[in-house]
Amino acid sequence: MRQRKIGEVILDVRNISLSFGGVKALQGISFDVREHEVRAIIGPNGAGKSSMLNCINGVYHPQEGEIVFRGEVRRDMDTHHAAESGIGRTFQNLALFKGMSVLDNIMTGRNLRMKTGILAQALHLGPARAEELREREFVEHVIDFLEIQAYRKTPVGRLPYGLQKRVDLGRALAAQPQVLLLDEPMAGMNLEEKQDMCRFVLDINDEFGTTIVLIEHDMGVVMDISDRVVVLDYGKKIGDGTPDEVRNDPEVIKAYLGVSH
């Protein structure tokens, strides 16, 4: 068993409600995430898991509730502010930049830190060049960490699915987020790829101390790697606790596992 220092609450989601037209995607959801922990969100299809992540990093704007991140209380998040204050994100359906190489995709993760202006870039002046090299160094660490050195210059569209998922992770990681939101990082992978991905997630958590919020369908994985689990069903929270608590919660068993009483 891994031993980590789980800290204070870093992200607190309070009473979030989100609807599209008449469809209520989320209804009064609250939960918190502590620093350095691995927090899973589970629930059947259409439970509102991805919508939840989308609210946390500002892709969607909930009608009600507030989000507290690192002590800052906000009515809702906007994407740029979320990225700037340290929320990273991967996507359920790959959202890589298809026309760009692996290296360039991961380099975009550093864009927030790159400040040289258009003219300096165009003339390739000293500061622009130095900045590019400095960020490249960091990106190379990420590439090494994810073991994708061989594909550096390959257009991402040509990579197999499992590797694309890794690049997606790398792009988020390059931004050095405090909290990393992973939307089904292991969906569609074979056993070996899943093991690799598990290892990466745990290593990120251990080595960089990154807090992880993860949506996953594979119960084995969820129970293995997460510290606490939130269970959603039809936009409502029906369970919250350690894997063991959740596993034995009759409400969860009824709704999620589909086992009759």
């Binding site: 996507f91 959202a95 930049f97 760009m100």
Partner: peptide
């Protein structure tokens, strides 16, 4: 290029 290929993802990374 990020805007061109996937604008939502581009926004999400800042």
């Amino acid at each position: 290029m990020a805007m061109r290929d996937m604008d939502v993802a581009a926004e999400v990374i800042g």
